Amino acid sequence: MMYSEAILDYANSKRFRGKLDDATVIEEGKNISCGDEITLYLKVEDGVVKDAKFEGMGCVISQASASLMLERIVGERVEEIFSLIEEAEKMSRGENFDEGKLKNVTLMSDIKNYPARVKCFILAWKTLKEALKKISRS
């Protein structure tokens, strides 16, 4: 079910919402086809995401995806996060993916059945990839 109670809880959660004043990188992402927007704030120290927040507006799917994603990546090494992004992309396309790596993100594994909503799900992940590229280059 695309709008399960758990997904609605993540979409409405305040846990990862807001700005990080000491963010190492800030990245904005927009889905121009539907208007979803997200701004990611990541604090990275010694190659590890120590804290993360987001601000955004948009549908339940985009907001829940951002919340689930940040829950999954805080505490992870940047190099590992690139593989998590790849697994999330596979999941969204309906390909085989490593459920163990994604943990709670698999709450949204049905997204593959809603092609029009895949862009909503993947927005946060694409924004994260761009943010991490900036960190990797610095």
Rank of each mutant, 00 (worst) to 15 (best):
R77A: 14
R17G: 01
S138T: 03
M57I: 00
G100T: 08
K101Q: 13
W125Y: 15
L40V: 03
V25M: 07
T106D: 07
E76D: 14
L132M: 05
K112Y: 15
A6C: 07
G75N: 11
E5K: 14
R93W: 14
E86K: 13
A23L: 01
Y10D: 04
E99M: 11
A116R: 11
N104P: 15
C59D: 13
S13R: 01
E95Y: 10
E99W: 12
M2C: 01
F121V: 08
F97R: 05
I26W: 09
N113G: 08
L20D: 04
E45Y: 05
Y114K: 07
A88I: 10
S65H: 01
E89H: 15
S13W: 01
E79S: 14
E71N: 07
D98E: 14
D51R: 07
A64E: 12
C34K: 02
M1G: 15
V105G: 03
G56Y: 00
G100W: 09
P115T: 04
G94L: 06
K43S: 06
A64P: 10
T24V: 01
G56L: 01
Y41V: 01
V118T: 14
F16R: 03
S92T: 10
L123C: 04
A124F: 02
Y10S: 04
L40D: 03
F97P: 06
N104I: 03
F97M: 08
F97W: 05
Y3D: 07
L102R: 03
I32V: 14
Y3H: 09
E89K: 15
I81K: 11
A116H: 10
I61M: 09
D46Y: 04
S67M: 09
K133I: 00
I111Y: 13
N113T: 00
S33L: 10
A52I: 07
A52Q: 09
D46H: 06
A6G: 02
S138E: 13
F54H: 08
T127S: 05
S109Y: 12
N12H: 09
M57N: 12
V78F: 08
K129G: 03
K103M: 00
S13F: 00
T127A: 05
G35E: 08
D9Q: 11
L40P: 07
L20K: 02
D110A: 10
A116M: 14
F121N: 14
K134G: 06
A116Y: 05
E80D: 15
V78G: 11
E55F: 07
S13H: 00
K53N: 11
V49C: 04
K112V: 09
D46W: 03
Q63M: 12
E37M: 06
T39I: 07
T106E: 07
I26E: 15
A88D: 08
V74Q: 06
S67F: 04
F121I: 08
M57Q: 10
L107F: 04
D110Q: 12
I26R: 09
G18R: 08
R117A: 05
G58E: 04
Q63W: 01
E5D: 15
S33P: 08
K129Y: 13
K30Y: 15
L42T: 00
D51F: 13
S62D: 15
L123D: 00
D36L: 08
V44C: 10
G47I: 00
I38V: 12
A131T: 01
